[in-house]
Design a protein around this nucleic acid. Structure first.
Length: 745
DNA sequence: GTCTCTAACCTTTTT
DNA sequence: GGTTAGAGAC
């Protein structure tokens, strides 16, 4: 029974109540993941449940991986067979088995929302819909809402007085038809198709119900209607469903999440038991109290009293900056103080900066770069959303599933091979008329009279290229296939010829993609093209975030959920930003913004810094923002107001470089002396002067290898290594200290 | 058909 | 301040 010894009595109860429906309200930092993992381990080890009868759902792949790892650690063996995954991957897996029942082929592709938007735009163009009157974004979100609610095109009855709805209905119909022709599913379809499958094929549903003897749902407050429906169907036979969540941390209403799911759970499952975890193990008393104080203002919530045995801790620090630059300087100054300065003892990895919208990262990034502080941004432009990556993936998708017209359109003329827009339009119309996938239309079109012979030759060449790859795809590994593709299509060659910074960075990204593939190929299992594409389609920002070295983390408040850091900054606490004004006017929207703030605050373990700027530039235009109403909700006695330092100075020092330098050294004379002595003892060299000046993208010259460009930099100490791509000899990984690099720009 | 330059948009948050 | 779609030149 050693498993239970490490849990508090309430947590124990949550683990032991294995039979029947169970709702666990888990406050921030109350050991939610701990309960779930111990529960799984307990079921397997003590109750003798077979691993494949356990199904645990999370929202991110990262959370799923982490859970599996922790269960394995508890059990001491592998948890093989336990089904731990996200809603979307689980559904993809089910559909790969049974989708033929629904008239799709098993090698369907998954369209992400970028694909979805492109696809929608073509349809809207074909239907002659004015983008101004019907913004594609609005149509897209309307579509998503319908899907999240489980409404199929033929079930949707728009109001006859609402033009938008009427158009939406037409687009929806056409959109789904096209997806079918392309043998493709979007994110929403993954879920809805499984419910349709279950409804129409009871024997399939029963087989999964039989399998899912014990079901667990993490972050239950973020489930939407269709996800909840899925859970209910899956647990119909055994009723052993344990949902864990926190209504105060529900921040995805705008995406269709229903807080109602958690608040009404007891109604839907009258026999459900309810356990509330209220002891917080993460934050200091001050942080917890301040956060609770804020969220208590919400009306639609279940009352709970979080408490902690942790020390009281420091008060929260609040700073009013002049503008976002000033705000960033405050953040950096505090980071330096705590990492290398007067109050040193922290590492960069202990620090996180949260903001409401991605665009806010720039100001902070600029300042971090200026001070040579290593950092990572979670989210923003995602690796798998980059143009070049999507191009390569489109080739692979097409090889895997030739019906995928969207991918075909993406690469049919990339790199340009003389098959232009007009030609594609003709073939598109031709294919639609015949009800064929675009690729098949292309193949038939080659025989048609209405195309100029020169174009037909080009088309034939392209078809031959794809066919050749389709034939050989099985005998290559993923990376081999991709490398061959890049060579044969001339994609890399074209980039090489461009010789722009942008092209170089694209090549590096493609290179990185190959690296990812090679990494996967190191594993024991063979990675099929299909598994790889599935995996890639369903990754999220947070999945890609791992503790890569000692760096400050920057992310949106949404991304921060589920993470924790000793030192947290929340910037831009202003009316319009937090709460964000693009929100609706409903109370529910305002409450969600408040919860967002609450989620951010409760990520902090020891220190919490809050700030706002008097003026902030959006789209390059300055704008004065009022302090956020949420600031008034913070208890004053827990706050410490940071004095604005050197106001005059910053007025003078704007553009004068010597002044800039002056201020840096002035700012932390103690820090410097400390760092230097630390360095003498053989520790890390961290003084600003001691930093190695290499940055990604810099052009450098090596005495032997000649000119090159810095691709990546590892480490910030004397062992720093850099990977440099040289024009003549290719990529080399060098120890910066010995490399004698000369910086060219 | 391809390339380049300008103007309009833009910023929520994402599986 | 940056990106992207669309117009215009070749």
């Amino acid at each position: 029974m050693s498993l239970l010894n490490e849990l508090n009595p309430v947590q124990q109860k949550a683990v032991l109540e294995t039979e029947g429906p169970l709702l666990v309200f888990a406050g921030a930092g109350s050991g939610k993941t701990r309960v779930l993992t111990y529960r799984i381990a307990y079921l397997i080890q003590e109750k003798g449940v077979r691993p494949w009868n356990i199904f645990a759902v999370t929202f991110t792949n990262k959370a799923a991986d982490e859970m599996r790892e922790r269960v394995e650690r508890l059990l001491g063996t592998s948890a093989k067979g336990t089904w731990i995954s996200t809603f979307h991957s689980a559904c993809a897996r089910i559909l790969r088995q049974h989708i033929e029942h629904l008239g799709f082929k098993r090698n369907f592709v998954i369209y992400d929302d970028q694909d979805q938007e492109r696809h929608l735009k073509t349809i809207m163009k074909e239907l002659n819909l004015d983008f101004k009157m019907f913004p594609p974004r609005a149509i897209q979100s309307g579509l998503d809402q319908l899907k999240n609610a489980g409404v199929t095109p033929d079930q949707y009855s728009p109001s006859p007085y609402n033009i938008f709805q009427k158009r939406l209905a037409v687009v929806y119909q056409r959109y789904q038809e096209d997806l079918h022709r392309n043998n493709a599913l979007d994110f929403g379809d993954l879920l809805t198709f499984v419910t349709i499958l279950f409804r129409r094929f009871p024997e399939v549903r029963r087989s999964y119900q039989e399998l899912c003897r014990y079901v667990m749902v993490d972050e239950f407050q973020d489930t939407n209607l269709i996800q909840y429906q899925l859970i209910r169907e899956m647990t119909e036979a055994h009723h052993n469903v344990c949902v864990v969540g926190d209504d105060d941390q529900s921040i995805y209403r705008w995406r269709g999440a229903e807080v109602g799911n958690i608040l009404n759970f007891e109604k839907d499952f009258p026999e459900a038991r309810v356990i509330t975890l209220e002891q917080n193990y993460r934050s200091t008393q001050n942080i917890l109290e301040a956060a609770s104080h804020v969220v208590r203002k919400n009306r639609y919530r279940k009352e709970k009293k979080l408490w902690t045995e942790n020390p009281e801790g420091e008060p929260l620090t609040f700073f009013v900056a002049e503008d976002e630059e000033d705000e960033a300087r405050f953040v950096i100054q505090k980071i330096m103080e705590h990492v290398s300065g007067a109050k040193s003892g922290r590492s960069y990895r202990d620090v996180a900066v949260f903001y409401r919208i991605n665009a806010q990262s720039r100001a902070v990034e600029d300042e971090l770069v200026k001070n040579r502080i290593p950092y990572t941004v979670v989210g923003g432009m995602k690796f798998y959303e980059r143009k070049e990556i999507k191009d390569v993936l489109a080739y692979l998708k097409l090889i895997d599933n030739p019906s995928d017209g969207l991918s075909l359109k993406r690469i049919i003329n990339v790199p340009s091979r003389g098959i232009g827009e007009k030609t594609v339009e003709k073939i598109e119309a031709f294919s639609r008329e015949k009800g064929l996938p675009l690729y098949d239309g292309l193949k038939q079109g080659v025989e048609e009279e209405w195309l100029p012979p020169a174009v037909k030759t080009k088309m034939k060449e392209f078809i031959q290229l794809i066919e050749a790859f389709r034939k050989d795809a099985g005998s290559f590994t993923l990376s081999q296939l991709t490398l061959a593709l890049l060579a044969k299509t001339g994609y890399l060659q074209r980039l090489k010829e461009e010789r722009t910074d942008e092209a170089i960075s694209k090549m590096e990204n493609v290179d990185e993609l190959i690296n990812v593939m090679m990494g996967l190929e190191q594993g024991e299992e063979k990675v099929s093209l299909e598994t790889f594409l599935d995996k890639v389609s369903l990754v999220t920002d947070v999945d890609l975030y791992e503790d890569k070295g000692n760096r400050v983390s920057l992310m949106t408040l949404h991304c921060a959920k589920g993470l924790e850091f000793p030192m947290v900054f929340i910037v831009g606490i202003e009316e319009g930003l937090l709460p964000h004004y693009r929100r609706g006017e409903e109370i529910e929207d305002m409450e969600e913004e408040r919860r967002l703030f609450y989620v951010g605050m409760t990520r902090a373990k020891e220190r919490l810094f809050l700030s706002r700027a008097e003026e902030r530039s959006t789209f390059g235009v300055g704008r004065a923002n009022l302090p956020s109403r949420f600031l008034d909700e913070l208890p004053v006695e827990l706050m410490q107001f940071e004095e604005k330092k050197g106001r005059m100075e910053s007025l003078f020092s704007q553009e004068t470089p010597w002044r800039e330098h002056d201020r840096q050294t002035e700012m932390m004379p103690e820090d410097l002396s400390q760092e230097i002595s630390f360095a003498e003892e053989g520790g890390l060299v961290l003084s600003p002067e001691g930093f190695f000046p290499l940055k990604i993208g810099m052009r450098v010259r090596h005495p032997k290898f000649g000119e090159g460009r810095v691709k990546s930099v590892e480490g910030m100490d004397e062992n720093q290594k850099a990977t440099v791509v040289f024009q003549n000899v290719g990529a080399k990984r060098l120890k910066v200290r010995y490399a004698n690099l000369e910086i060219l720009e």
